[in-house]
Structure formats: structure tokens, C-alpha cells
Write a protein that binds this DNA or RNA. Structure first.
Lengths: 217, 217, 217, 217
DNA sequence: AATGAATGAGGCTTCATTCAT
DNA sequence: CATGAATGAAGCCTCATTCAT
């Protein structure tokens, strides 16, 4: 009875979503590559399957496009964090695991790092407008909080460092290594992202955090 | 009534230097505030005692002006580092002192931090062209190197971390705290540069470095 | 529970008419508010129960929509004029009555005034295409003509002023008061449409016409 | 001793002024022809000796250009009015003279009329921003005021009509005749600006004002 | 009869830079 | 040594309209 009529609506929606995603991917690359002001809407359009007009049709403008790119980038890093389950690990191992995941994600997503750098040059004015980012990011803190609490209960962690401090320490290390890679290399002659040194820095970060947390304070 | 005959050559040179310095100061603020692409030559000129034409006259263009700004910013931070004399201090105290000086300089010079962020968005292409920067920056590494060597001799420092790693660790911490202040605050609700938390982070950095260097590795 | 079977044809037609009327009302407001070039098809659609696509479906385009709006506006003002019956009045009273009706209609329909202003900026090119407008407007002149004739017969009206001149005089007064209200107020500080001055101007117009028509010429 | 050096500065200024005037003239024509929203910056530029860029250099933007056009148009009509000296004329003749001057100026400057129509479509928002227009326009009222006062003293003018009312009456007549010329012609078949009818309307206006002012009220 | 998605053409504006003296 | 005037190229965005079902 029900003829296999092409599900026009759905197919269109899929097209629409694909086009949007295409634009978002391209825009993410362009914004990461050149920053907000350096990025060109024409260039994004040219690297896309569609036309410049579609950017305005789907996103409204350069700024809104940038904001969706940024929001998606944050969502992804937090999603990656959520995949690690550390509930069953002892505090030391758990904290090391989190450091490693963060390290890996920054390394794998230099564009995310560059977007965040760009956003800070703009004083986080766009992020400030994104209600929802707080919600998306708090799980990361809650997780650390729980691990730190367990560590303190066991008497192995100092107690003058809170979850946000640990997050800053880990993120700062990972972020700087990727974000400042270029000036660092130009000035000190060392490529912080050289694969040959990857394990060294990955371990260094874990040690660093553990050494500090387990020190006497 | 009788005006003193102007000692033409010298006074002109002084004028020239003053104008250049005026432009450089203004440009530093503008580039730090908005990044390279966001900065406007017109805006720099407007905030200056002179005219836009002079920027081209003295510097050649936006890019060259930016490069001089950047070069001066690096020279200043390294000069600050050179003022500390740690030769007479024991390795632990010396390394703590260096961390503090770096911490203080980043805090006091957020514009430097923003310029370096901007430069990294541009893949350090300008810094790469600045041949003198390596020379200006190596003393910082040499100093650390000497301290680390002393510490290792005394058997109190681990030996799998070199001077550049320590520099990265210290700079990364100080840099992130200032550079990512805005997104961090928007997302986690904590102002990393809040004066009330200044001592906490300053001590945290020192502990961090020392805890790690003195751990067993 | 049992929905009444829709009398398809008629109901559809009614739907159609309602949608058309909805669009026309909204478009009238938008064109009056912003002029032809300032009006936005998107905006009209947004203020409507239907979608932009329907505007093209029912009217063909912006220009045709504008023309229907204009035609309807003219039809309405002339219809209002037809409601007054002055055949039984003496010429003086009749002419005063017509002046008042015109005055009232302009005051009550500033949108009509603005549409006509807009149309004149376009050199009445649309009105010129509207073949029916002449027919719809001649009764107004014929009416005046008849009154003037009676007045002249009675020896109370001068004879160097014809019906079209009187119409121009009355319309001009009423039109200017509404159309140029804004510049007049900005420049001379007087709101010509202030309710407190309404009777003054309404009487002034009647006097004006009568004084002139009954003068010796 | 003083060589006839070309007065560079002055010459340049003259060039500048000529270019500005060229743009203003062209813009006045374009804005009058098509209204604010219908006018095209590109079109103005094309009809000019210079380029589109110069419009932004000299005026800042479309809106500012429009405002300067409008301001100049008002200044000109008031300047024309100031050229008539009516102090020595008896009130009746004086008021007739003013009506004629106004009539002539509207006829000679249809662009002024169209600009004012356009401005009213925009609710006089630009005129409202022009401080100074009030000052430029009040002399016209003061002049009328003085004539009306003299007429009343002599017992020949009614006293329920003030200077602003008279100005409205005269302007309204002149303005409508030019502004609504096109719709009027399309609908009633009469060209109000036909030279053959010029004297008729010019006299009609004078009579109208005088008949009304000298009526018993 | 009705509609959501798409779009080519053109709009206004801004930028770093150079010209001409 | 210094400068006011000028500008080509490119930027972001909006418009009325049509496509494809």
C-alpha cells in the first residue's frame, strides 16, 4: 500500500546538514589558519562545495559562523574527555590518564588550539556570548574534583590545589606546546611537537602533575 | 627673543627617535589588542602624534612595523631576565627565582603575551625572519643550563629534563595564565589573573618546577 | 469527532482571498513605511501568516504587489468620497463638506499619503500602467464640477477656477499637512497633525476654499 | 625675491572643493531621482569625475552624503527667499511677493521637492539630526511674521492665522504642484507644471492667500 | 495549489598603500 | 625631511527571485 515514495523531506534535510557540515569544516580550518580577522569569507566559500551565499543563508554571517565553529570545537574536546572512564582507577593513575587524554587531544587538534588562541585575542567575547559552554565544560572539572577528593582521602594528594588549578596546569602545558610551537622553534630551535619528543613530553606532563600533587605542599 | 640656533642634526635625530618610539608604542598596543589582521594602520596613526604617512615613511608598511614591535617586545623581556643575578644562589633557589621573574614579567606585560599569541597564529613567520632573536634569547637558556648543571652535580636534580624543557614548563605556565585568561574565565568562572590568587599561582609554579626537578624521575 | 467535509472549492477560494488580503495589508504597511525601494519582500513575508513564496505565487513579484497595494489604496479613498452625498446641499456647504471629507480621509490614512509620495518619486510609472485608476477617480472631479456649476449659476463662485483646480487645492492642503509633517516639525517645530490643531486646520481649509471661490477673481 | 611659486595648498583645496561639489551635484540628482534607498552609490560615482572611493573619502558614506545634499538644498531655498526685500512693500504686495518667490523656487527646483518628499518617507530622521536647519529656516518665518503684524495693524488681515500657517499654505500649494505632478497627471490628465498653466497657478496662489488673509475670518 | 531550499547579482564599505608636492 | 590627498583592490553582506518537488 505504502509506495516507496522518496522521503523528500528527509533527504533534503540530509543535504542541508551535509552542506552545513561542509561549510563548518572548511571554516574551522580557515579560522584556525588565519584567525578571525585574517579569515576570508570568500576563501571559505571557495574551499566549499557551495557558494558564499550559502554561508549567509545557513549561518547569517562571518561572526555567527565563527561562533558555531568554536562551539563545535569545544564540544568535541569535552566529548573526548568523557570517553575516558577513570572511576575504577586509583587517583594517581586516573590523573595521569586525564593528563594523557588532554595531551593527545591537543596534539591531535591543533586547530582547536589555534581557535582558542584567536578567541583570546578577542577577549573571549564570542565565548562569553555562548551560554551553554559552561555546561559543556563543567564535567571536566567535576571529574577532576572527584579524583582529587579520593586522593586526598587516601592521604596521597596535597590539598592546596583544586580541580580548576589542576585543569589549568594540564591544559596550559598541552596548550602551550601546540600553540607556541612556532615561536618556540624559531627562537630556541626546538620543535615541541616533534614526534621524536612526543613520549618525553607526554611522560613529563604526567610526572609533573603527580610530582606536584604528591609533594608535601 | 633670540631663539637658540637649533643644533640641526642632533635635534632632528632626536625628533625622529621620539616619533618612531611614539609610533612603536601605539602600534604595540594596537597589535596586542587586535592581532595583526585586526589592527588598523589608520587607528595606529590616529592614536599617534604624527600621521599615517609617517608610518610608511619610517617603517615601510604594516608588516615591518609589526616586526619592529615584536622584536622590541622580545628584547625587553630578555633584558628583564638578564637583570636577575642568580649565580650566587643555590640551584633550587635560583630556579625558583627565575620562575618568579618570568611569572612577574608575563603578568606585567600582557601585551607581550598577546603579541606572541598573534605571532603564533601566523606560524611565527615574522619571528623566523628576525635573525637577531635567537641571539637575544639564548642567554635565558644558558642561564638555566648552568643552574641545572649545578643541581645535577649536587645530585638534587633529575637529569632527564634539559634547560629548554624547564624554560618551556615555566613559560607555558606563565603564558597560559595570561593568554587564555579570557576563555578560562568565561568557561570555568575563574579569573587566573585575579590579584587575590596571584601569590597562590606564583608559589604553585615554583613548587611545581622544584617538585618535578627534584623527584626521582 | 467527525470533521465536516470541507466544501473544497469555496473554502479554498476563501482561504486564497484571506491570504491575499493578509499579504496586501502587510505590504501596504511596509511600502508606506519604507517606500518601494526601502520595503523588503522578506520583511513583508515575515509579518504575514504565509511565506515569501506565496507572495510570488499570488502576485508575481514585488512590483506587482506594490501595484495592487496602490490600486487598492486609491479605490478606498474614492469609495470614501462617494459615500458623501452633497447633491442636496447648497454649493458653499457642499464644497466645504468635500473639503472636510478629504481632510478627514488624509488624516485617517497617512499610509495612503505615503504611498502616493512614494509613487511620485517613481514618476507615477506604476499608476500610469494602472488603466482603471482614471475611471475610479473621475467621479470626484465630476462631483466638484457639478457643485461649481451650481455656484456659478447662483453668481456666488468665480469662474476662473475649475474642478480640477479646486481638487488640487484641497488635496494639496490635506496632503502636505500629512506628507510633510515630519520635515515641517523638525524645521519649524510645529506638528501639523497635532490633534489640538486639527479643528483649526480643518476650518482653515474650508475658509480658504470658500474665500477664494467667492472672491471677485 | 619671492618667486611666483604655485600656491600649491590653495590649488589643492580648490581641486578638493571642486571634486566635492561635483559629487554633491551628482548625488543630489541621483537621490532626487530615485530616493535614498533607490539611489546607488555606484551610479553616483559613475556619473562623477572621480571614483566611488572618493565618496567615502569625502563624505564617509551614503547617508552622510545624502545629508549634505539635503542640507545644501535647504540652504539654497532659504537663500533665495532672503534675496527678496519686502520691507518697503505694503503687506498685501509683500505677501504676494513671497508667494511668488516660493512658487518660482519650487518650480525651478523640482529636485529639492523630491528630496524633501524622500526625507519625509524617512520620517525626517536625517533632518532631525541636522542641527542648524532650524536656524537656517527661521528667517522665513520671521519675515512672514513681520508682514502679518503690519497687516493686522492696518486692520486688513485676519488674526487667526499665524506666520507658520501662512508658510504651510504657500509651501503646501507649491510643493504639491511639483511633488504630486506625476500621479495627478496620470489620474486627472492635467500636468500641473505645464508652462501654459504657470501664470494661472502663480496668480491663483497669490489670490488664495490674499483672499483668505483679508476675509473676515 | 503550495512550499522549503537555494541563489546570482549587486549593494555598501574598508583596507593598506602610493602620489605629488 | 615631511605631508595632505588620493586610490585600486578587496571585504562582508543583502536583495528579489527561482528551483525542485
Amino acid at each position: 500500500m505504502t509506495a516507496p515514495v522518496p522521503p523528500a523531506g528527509e533527504e533534503r534535510r540530509r543535504d542541508r546538514d551535509r552542506t552545513r557540515a561542509d561549510i563548518l569544516d572548511t571554516a574551522a580550518a580557515e579560522f584556525a589558519e588565519r584567525g578571525f580577522d585574517g579569515a576570508r569569507v570568500d576563501e571559505i566559500a571557495a574551499r566549499t562545495r557551495t557558494t558564499k551565499r550559502m554561508i549567509y543563508y545557513y549561518f547569517g554571517g562571518k561572526k555567527q559562523l565563527y561562533m558555531e565553529v568554536l562551539e563545535r570545537a569545544y564540544a568535541r574536546i569535552r566529548a573526548a574527555e568523557q570517553t575516558v572512564s577513570v572511576g575504577h582507577l586509583d587517583p594517581l593513575t586516573a590523573i595521569r590518564r586525564i593528563a594523557e587524554v588532554t595531551f593527545d587531544h591537543h596534539e591531535a587538534n591543533p586547530d582547536f588550539v589555534r581557535l582558542v588562541s584567536t578567541e583570546n585575542i578577542h577577549n573571549a567575547e564570542h565565548v562569553a556570548e555562548m551560554t551553554g559552554l559552561v555546561r559543556v565544560n563543567t564535567p571536566a572539572i567535576l571529574l577532576l574534583d572527584e579524583i582529587l577528593a579520593r586522593g586526598r582521602e587516601q592521604g596521597i594528594f596535597r590539598d592546596d590545589i583544586d580541580a580548576i588549578d589542576v585543569h589549568m596546569l594540564i591544559s596550559g602545558f598541552c596548550f602551550f606546546r601546540v600553540a607556541n610551537r612556532h615561536t618556540f622553534r624559531a627562537i630556541f630551535g626546538r620543535d615541541l611537537v616533534d614526534p621524536a619528543r612526543r613520549e618525553h613530553y607526554r611522560k613529563m606532563l604526567g610526572d609533573l602533575v603527580v610530582d606536584h600533587l604528591t609533594a608535601l605542599g
